[in-house]
Design a protein around this nucleic acid. Structure first.
Lengths: 220, 220
DNA sequence: TAGATTGTTAATCGATTAACAATC
DNA sequence: TAGATTGTTAATCGATTAACAATC
């Protein structure tokens, strides 16, 4: 069983490995991956051990083998259909994001409460009425839903999804959802992310003595 | 010094506490916060201890005091000006996001490479040419930058920001940036987030024996 | 008072890091 | 061969959880 911290580093390894492959390289050492990603070689070796790929002393790891193993470990080798709820700016941005293809995620339908948006094309699909969400998820046996509605509506949408038999929810709304324990939930919370940034800034600035040290580039 | 995991839970506490206050409540127990957020009461008490607010046995914590302490701890009490680079869908979504106000983050300028977008209004600002980025950051003593450009351009943009004297970067591009160690970096990487979701799904499904268990709602 | 709740110290758990033998 | 690199076992570090006394 691969740990969550290791899983979180997999996408960074994957991006770098794919870049190396494009540059025509065949082998890479843990030392090199570590240097480029700001990790320790020991940690990279531990992570690589999780993939099941064995390295060769003095040579390193076979790039193609690592890519295949990481993709397989994440389950990104076969595409999964997903619905997205909330055709606001963020919803549209995610629906059109082509990078999802390399994660094996495919947004097959977008839903919104705003009647004015019905039928509007977004990415490779169109906007459907919210009333059709439950039936769509159930009929198409959709397993994953992406929530990009405002915080106030997020729980309501989640409840509909659960009733319809959803298996996993990726929630972008700034709201902590209450879900049955057998539903997989992943948050992408801007507030949480910014809180960490803020805290790191505070630590740095506190070290300097004031909130924002005068920059030497500051032209008054 | 408050730990990062605690910092990550602060925004969730904050949302809930503000909701309670709106409902006219004055006190809340760690037990109740724990129940609503799916945490243990012990963990909530530990986190609350970090804020410096003392609770009262049998009563709990004063909501206003907790809100003030968390906001103060995150440095969200006075607004910070930030620039955003990349006026694509995600950039526009973030620039218009009004929730940032409650984090003390204010996007004061948006930059893009696309000349067709210059002067276009986004949120409370307009799009500026990329050429003006460096001077803007330096002249206005901007400390925080949000990067929403494609992965290929992210490092280039980051380099300009560093030269201009930026202190912290919030990077949404799927790219691991190389930065001087004194620059605060926070990633919000969709791939990482989705990788965790994928891994959790795999664990759940492996437990069931197949990749996606047939849903009982599946109408064939 | 009795009992719910806080706060703190100790125990547990898990991830990172270190040490070092094995390998090509 | 010599030396860079891997793989594994042990040590360290930090966060969570448990236990329990203190409090209103």
């Amino acid at each position: 069983m691969i740990s969550i911290p290791t899983i979180k580093r997999f996408p960074s390894y994957l991006r770098l490995l794919r870049q190396y492959r494009e540059e025509g390289e065949l082998w890479v050492s843990a030392t090199r991956l570590a240097t480029e990603l700001g990790l320790t070689p020991i940690q990279v070796r531990k992570d690589m051990a999780g993939t099941g790929v064995e390295g060769r002393p003095k040579v390193g790891f076979e790039i193609d083998a690592l890519i295949a193993a990481i993709v397989e470990n994440l389950g990104w080798d076969n595409a999964t259909d997903a619905v997205l709820i909330g055709a606001g700016h963020l919803g549209v941005a995610l629906s059109r994001y082509e990078g999802f293809a390399s994660y094996g995620l495919k947004i097959v339908a977008v839903f919104d409460r705003d009647t004015a948006k019905y039928g509007r094309p977004i990415g490779k699909t169109i906007v459907y009425p919210m009333e059709e969400l439950k039936a769509y998820v159930a009929d198409h046996a959709i397993n994953i839903a992406v929530i990009t509605v405002p915080a106030e509506s997020a729980q309501e949408v989640a409840d509909i999804l659960v009733e319809a038999g959803i298996k996993a929810i990726w929630n972008f709304a700034p709201k902590d959802l209450r879900l049955p324990s057998d539903i997989v939930l992943q948050r992408t919370d801007l507030a949480t992310s910014f809180a960490v940034l803020s805290a790191k800034c505070r630590r740095l600035f506190d070290h300097c003595g004031n909130q924002f040290p005068e920059t030497h580039h500051n032209v008054t």
